[in-house]
């Protein structure tokens, strides 16, 4: 087994650690660094539950080698709130009932963040396209689409 030194900037903080070269980003974030909001489900890129932002872009942490993203800026669900103030997307998800079991929620919110970063005022179709990589079994998606539309209308 090979270990290498790694630095990650997670949610704005610097972390220096030794990682296994075969560790996935999901495993390092969840198990080594304790960001338990990074959820694993399918493990194969079909569900989006493990979505985080790497250098501002939404990726699947279950298919990302931690070693390959050393030195990068990573944002997890834990990095969205500013102190006790939730991100507008988070507030909208709660307000619109876009959450049920909540297991897909962190990945869904991060995908929404990615979408709104790229396109602050998406249409309904653009929202569906932007979040199509994130499966939710509970909600039937309507309320998620409403929540993201609401944020988009608010201009944030």
């Amino acid at each position: 087994m090979q270990k290498i030194p790694a630095t990650f900037f997670v949610n704005g903080d610097r972390y220096d650690l030794m990682i296994d070269t075969h560790a996935l980003l999901l495993e390092v974030l969840r198990d080594d660094l304790g960001f338990k909001g990074v959820h694993e489900s399918c493990g194969e890129g079909d569900c989006g539950a493990c979505t985080v932002l790497v250098d501002g872009v939404a990726v699947l942490s279950c298919l990302t080698l931690a070693a390959a993203v050393r030195g990068k800026e990573i944002v997890t669900i834990e990095g969205l709130a500013k102190g006790s103030d939730l991100d507008p997307i988070q507030n909208a998800f709660v307000k619109h009932g876009a959450i049920q079991c909540g297991y897909c929620t962190p990945g869904m919110v991060m995908a929404a963040k990615n979408l709104l970063n790229e396109n602050p005022h998406p249409s309904r179709e653009e929202i569906k396209k932007g979040l199509a990589g994130n499966l939710c079994r509970c909600t039937g998606y309507n309320k998620i689409i409403e929540a993201v539309s609401d944020v988009a209308k608010g201009g944030k």
């Binding site: 087994m1 090979q2 296994d20 070269t21 075969h22 495993e27 493990g43 070693a67």
Partner: peptide, 14 residues
Amino acid sequence: MLFRALSPFSYWEA
């Protein structure tokens, strides 16, 4: 660490 989905391999960055 507790969970590792992949088996170890030798890693190179070209």
